[in-house]
Design a binder for these strands. Structure first.
Lengths: 158, 158
DNA sequence: CCGAACTGGGACTATTTTAGTCCTAGTTGG
DNA sequence: CCAACTAGGACTAAAATAGTCCCAGTTCGG
């Protein structure tokens, strides 16, 4: 369906770890706490810092801390920081598209993109930490929701 | 941000092409009309057929045709057919997670997933074909929408 | 019947992304 | 100064994606 990089997941974990308090944590400390490779966590933290989701403190005794309160950080920001603002299609109205009818569908992808973006902006880190996420404000009428558990089942049987 | 395979895009194009009429089109014809490699289109069509989005007619003079009316086909179905029901995280409550706090965030990913899924279910192929997609029913208040044009700009400058 | 035109379903290869590691610099506390 | 950290890449390894090809089965038309 939709694919989110593992980094987005890692990033969220790291952010969740740091959300426990406002203290400064070194990369190695977070790595130990999260049972991940130090180098990897370090990389993640750098990415998060680049997008101002965490603040860095240099030098000995340095480390990182959440730049804002968990309720002021959206999932869209975290995903953005980790995966970059990658969108659905490539053609941004530049070229490649020879046909009119085709490009029209392209433009519509962006509408879809925006919808997803908005949905992600509504979910905060604070909510992600809570034991169970109970939506922000979404009408969950009985739509036939697709099963989410079937990972990697590219080869369908039906 | 979110990544959709190129196949999802191709699949949509193919579906859009076939939506022009209810006739039978061979893979090579679609390929020619869409200016894509025949083998690739053939593969796409097979995938779409497997999920009953198009119906196949075997033998000479055979080909594919839309299985339903464009307004009865959702983008979620097309994307699903092409990319499979891939979800955000891997752990489906099975194992790997040692920590409580971590897994709690995992569960919440699924909520997000559902939101996206629902959004995609509301957009039909018929709407995708229209010159400009004017949303289904989404409040587009002035949210700071992330720029969509910046493709592949993993290295941010800000 | 036979051959041409198609689909069905893979296998297979190439290419691009993604993930993960490491190295050199710069900063700060003791 | 030295030790503990972050900054920012470069680099390598692994995996997913995209794309091609092949062989089998089906149907139309002569």
């Amino acid at each position: 369906m939709l694919r989110l990089s593992k980094f987005a997941d890692y990033g969220t974990q790291v952010m969740a770890y740091m959300a426990k308090d406002g203290a400064v944590h070194s990369a190695s400390e977070v790595a130990a706490g999260l049972d991940m490779a130090a180098a990897t966590v370090s990389k993640i933290l750098k990415m998060l810092a680049r997008d101002d989701l965490v603040e860095s403190v240099m030098g000995a005794k340095g480390g990182y801390m959440l730049a804002r309160h968990p309720q002021d950080i959206s999932m869209a920001e975290i995903i953005n920081a980790m995966d970059g603002p990658i969108s659905i299609t490539e053609c941004s109205g530049t070229s490649a598209c020879t046909r009119e009818a085709l490009c029209s569908t392209r433009g519509n992808w962006q509408g879809i993109n925006r919808i997803i973006q908005e949905a992600l902006e509504k979910v905060t880190l604070a909510e992600m930490i809570k034991p169970k996420h109970n939506d922000t404000k979404h009408h969950t009428h009985g739509h036939h929701v697709v099963d989410i558990s079937a990972i990697r089942s590219r080869g369908k049987s039906a």
